[in-house]
């Protein structure tokens, strides 16, 4: 089962700020600073973290939409750095995306038929107009849309329906891995549940792997097999969902989990609320990135950056406090 589909090694992505013809390259945003993970065929890896932690940037680099500053990304054993445009196109066929905003992720001037047909045409999956139309109709029905959606424009659909169209587009070329970049975050709760269930059904049916980027811990807990927790461009903790949710090893993971609302007013929990804001990724803190907000930080955290290392139960955590969570 576990053949590694996507392999990311020491990925770094920096964005220059400022610049231009006469501007100087003044500063750098450290969006992603040394991130490694793998996604196996058929599994769901969730990347969670607060806004600005670099999780969406990871998705962009994985999709080949932005070149990495350093590090390696390979899909199905093919390293992006070694291949040209033609081979990249072959990779892209197996690697699709569903974006957060169902309103801007489709060209408003194209009909649904043409939107879903685009990957079929580009990758040469099938030939002939009518064959493509038939395939698009099948895909639309598979994601739960009426077949007459073909000749309508995206603006005629609701947010949840649009997200179904995006999923149909991602399925069209026969992808092995779909990057879901906050794919359900813009939807309201009942629609969100429908889309989550659709993704789970499709995963079971086609053996899809999902890279599920989200800040919604409840959805992640429902969907993911493994979870990576990101903070300020680094992975703080990565491991199997059950272990990570039951016994979070990293103080940041604990804070994140305690922020999830529990739908029961009788439950009173000690919330490990974090003080302050996310530090600027232009000038990340020295030592452990989390030390400015960590309730357990001590002197070593301010100078020495902890590496990810095994903390038992197949988990990796980047913290100097090596013991697992106090249970």
């Amino acid at each position: 089962m576990s053949t590694t589909l996507l392999d990311v090694r020491d990925l770094v992505k920096h964005y220059p700020v400022g610049g231009g013809l006469f501007g100087r390259r003044a500063e750098t945003v450290h969006a992603v600073d040394g991130v490694s993970f793998g996604v196996d065929a058929g599994e769901t890896l969730a990347i969670v973290g607060e806004s600005g932690c670099g999780k969406s940037t990871v998705g962009k680099v994985v999709l080949g939409l932005a070149p990495p500053t350093a590090g390696r990304v390979s899909f199905g054993g093919t390293d992006y750095a070694d291949i040209g445009a033609a081979d990249m196109k072959r990779v892209r066929r197996r690697l699709q995306v569903v974006f957060q905003d169902p309103f801007s992720s489709m060209n408003p001037r194209m009909k649904v038929r043409d939107i879903v047909a685009e990957p079929l045409e580009n990758f040469g999956v099938i030939d002939g107009r009518s064959a493509i139309t038939d395939r698009v109709r099948d895909l639309l029905v598979r994601v739960g849309l009426p077949a007459d959606a073909l000749n309508r424009f995206p603006h005629e659909f609701s947010g949840g329906q649009r997200q179904r169209i995006c999923i149909a587009r991602a399925l069209a070329p026969g992808a092995d891995l779909i990057v879901c970049d906050e794919a359900v975050s813009a939807l309201d709760v009942s629609v969100k549940a429908q889309i989550v269930n659709l993704l789970l059904d499709l995963q079971a049916e086609y053996g899809l792997a999902l890279l599920f980027i989200s800040h919604d811990i409840a959805v992640v807990e429902h969907m993911a097999h493994r979870v990576a927790v990101m903070y300020l461009g680094k992975i703080m903790e990565i491991g199997d969902r059950d272990v990570l949710f039951a016994q979070p090893a990293h103080p940041y993971t604990r804070a994140l989990l305690s922020a999830v609302p529990v739908p029961d007013p009788a439950v009173r929990r000690g919330r490990a609320a974090l003080a302050g804001d996310l530090p600027s990724p232009i000038d990340p803190p020295r030592g452990c990135r989390f030390h400015t907000r960590c309730p357990l930080a001590f002197d070593r955290c301010r100078v020495d950056e902890p590496a990810l290392r095994a903390v038992g139960s197949g988990r990796l955590a980047a913290c100097h406090l090596d013991q697992p969570a106090d249970a």
């Binding site: 999709l63 892209r92 699709q96 995306v97 974006f99 489709m106």
Partner: peptide
């Protein structure tokens, strides 16, 4: 995003 999506679709 639809430009990124088009790139991902091989355009």
């Amino acid at each position: 995003p639809y430009v990124d999506a088009a790139l991902a679709c091989g355009s």
